[in-house]
Amino acid sequence: MQDRPPLVTTPSMKPQILLAAKVPPFLVEALAQRYIVHDMLAQPDPGFVDRVAPQVRAVVANGESTITADFLARLPAVELVSVFGVGYDGVDVQAARQRGIQVTNTPDVLTDDVADMAMALLLAVARKVPQADRYVRDGQWGRAAFPFTRKVSGARLGIVGLGRIGSAIAQRARGFGMHIAYTARSRKDGIDYPYYPTPRDLAEQVDMLIVSTVGGPATHGLIDAETLRALGPQGILVNIARGTVVDEDALVEALATKAIAGAGLDVFASEPRVPAALASMDNVVLTPHMASGTLETRTAMANLVLDNLDAHFAGRPLPTPVP
């Protein structure tokens, strides 16, 4: 991480924070230099949180954390939830606001990496990169012909969710000469790409579908069996959003029956558990929720968590409060 000036406090003045998620070691180290850190995941005692709760003024979570109203109610002094990640669908933001608790996340800094990963997964599935790697490693080259793969350049791409990440995916897809269309909660002003009101309507019109929308109850199961059928037997699905956005059972069925051609998945409904059926399929590329997992981006995310905490305890405006 870049050198950062320490927060000016005496040991007795250091704010106490609760670490409620796994975050990179360099962030844990930086937090410990400036705050009193209570790592709840490192404590087997179920009563640990309640013992430290009266002194905890902030919670550090990540995009997979579940911070419910009941959990917040156990923390009478908490003032801030700082999320290490762009997604905060596991945080009950309404309950936090009712308590006067502010919530922050780390947007923008991970946009490029996630968009890059979306295109990497799309290419890996369409061009059968993992299979080609095994073909060479297993000594099959020259013994049997490798099957033809799918062209990506010039294909029709649908993007589900045209926010920061979706727009960055579209920018990259344009470099491949792809024909881009999208769906979102509403049509975006100033966007020339064709708009379709539902994922099913979009899927009917494209060859490949990338999911980049937010998670949470509003998008749970948004990509359902009907949408997958509409994508068709030559269709490819890529999900770099949240596992819950795709009906996982319907996806397994669609892949098993060849209702779609393949899928590239960085996220899953019950991480880190991945359905055995998906792991056994040769038409699926699986990665461990690593789309933003470059050192550069994770460092920038960590710095933004620190910036939000420092600003809060210094009484300054928060750099990235959630909308």
Rank of each mutant, 00 (worst) to 15 (best):
R4C: 07
P6R: 15
S12Y: 11
I36M: 09
D39M: 05
M40F: 06
A42C: 10
V52S: 11
V60A: 06
E64C: 10
T68P: 02
L72V: 02
S82N: 12
T104N: 05
L110Q: 06
M119T: 11
L121F: 04
Q131V: 05
Y135W: 15
R137H: 09
R143G: 09
R143D: 12
A145P: 08
A170L: 05
Q171G: 00
R172T: 03
R174F: 07
G175D: 02
A184R: 04
S186A: 14
K188E: 10
K188A: 09
K188D: 07
I191D: 01
P194G: 13
Y196K: 10
Y196V: 01
P197C: 04
L202H: 00
D207V: 02
D207F: 02
G216E: 11
I223T: 01
T227P: 04
L228C: 07
A230N: 12
Q234G: 15
I236M: 05
V238I: 14
N239A: 04
T244F: 01
T244Q: 11
A254W: 01
L255P: 03
A256V: 11
A259R: 12
G262T: 12
V274Y: 02
V274L: 04
A276C: 02
L278S: 09
A279D: 08
N283P: 05
T287I: 11
A291M: 09
T294D: 08
E296R: 14
T297D: 12
T299H: 14
L304C: 09
D310E: 14
L318W: 15
T320F: 07
P321A: 10
